[in-house]
Design a protein around this nucleic acid. Structure first.
Lengths: 187, 187
DNA sequence: TGCACTCTACCAACTAGTAGGCAGGCTGTC
DNA sequence: GACAGCCTGCCTACTAGTTGGTAGAGTGCA
């Protein structure tokens, strides 16, 4: 892993654990053992770094969701794939989804970053929409109204669950995700 | 309204629109037309102010939820009362629930503040639990599993919806809240 | 030798905060 | 009624620390 990737990896973690506003180049410097000026060499501004983090994260999440669909056609397993990733973040690493973190700080992060994360959110919801659509069509899932609305609900619940899990424990986040899965089971 | 209340009111708004980390005493000073030192007279530290905001907000939300239950025994109207408050925040004032904002910044806000907001979250969930329990018992609502789990889901979805609505428009937040209400309708 | 990467040294701006002083209003005493 | 003292709330002036950032120099490697 080269230096640029290292910076992006640590910055992603800091955004997921502290948020964009609360992390600094000094934090990165402390973690990597190089000076702030060296980091500026790779990412000349914080906004530039934030955008790079958003793009990289989006690419990674998009790829991992695509992999879930490659591994199984079963909508329940696909949904479990998504939920598993969510719970993994909160349980083992006290992180929340970077898209949710940025949505929360939407008014204060650079626009390039918030736009990139808004696009990722749309992509995730489209992915979930497809899962739910197939699930209902095959009689394996049940929910009222449009699939894209239910997908947005699943996404919003996931973001809320991660944040709630921070304060109240990962078990609570799991309960919330289990609850929405239960509510999707066909009668 | 005396000066202390004015400070708390503006600080609440700033936390709801920008988050705790991203607002400063200078912002308050600019808004109120008094110096930072004057604000320090009332609230000697930012942590102290943050805690006072959390306490005041909790009291207000608790009171407004109690009022909803005073105004109607109907669980659907009660749920609408809660959802209405959520949507009012995002639609007219680009605010999110301060509890959700603090959950998102959980790792970086003062502990006194995060504890206070965690207690508020528990209170809201208990309130929702009661609504859902009564709703199901009376055959007016339907959902799987325990009422407290469904209440936690409603709460998480609401937090997620507000944040999502920031990026994608208040209409999207409304769609999410409508979707979860639809899913609670008895078959 | 040139380039990528790192460093030192520095900057302006901003942050949360401190200390002492001023002004106005209220209360008590003479 | 006048005056002094106290209190609340505000001010000026200042602090140490941190932030994101700049400019130029040094180092190692292909």
């Amino acid at each position: 892993m080269d230096r640029k990737e290292q910076i992006l990896e640590i910055a992603t973690e800091l955004i997921q654990t502290r948020g964009y506003t609360a992390f600094s180049y000094q934090d990165l410097s402390d973690r990597l053992g190089i000076t702030k000026a060296s980091i500026h060499h790779h990412f000349p501004s914080k906004a530039n770094l934030g955008f790079a983090v958003a793009e990289r994260y989006s690419t990674a999440v998009t790829a991992s969701l695509a992999e879930v669909k490659q591994n199984t056609d079963d909508p329940w397993e696909q949904l479990d794939g998504y939920v598993g990733q969510i719970l993994q973040l909160i349980k083992t690493r006290d992180r929340i989804c970077a898209a949710g973190a940025v949505h929360s700080e939407y008014n204060v992060v650079p626009e390039s970053m918030s736009d990139a994360m808004a696009r990722l959110a749309k992509h995730i919801i489209a992915w979930l929409t497809d899962v739910l659509e197939v699930g209902r069509r095959e009689g394996m899932m049940d929910f009222p109204g449009k699939p894209e609305h239910q997908a947005a609900l699943v996404f919003a619940a996931a973001q809320g669950a991660m944040q709630f899990g921070r304060a109240h424990g990962a078990v609570k986040a799991r309960q919330i995700m289990d609850q929405i899965k239960e509510s999707l089971k066909a009668a």
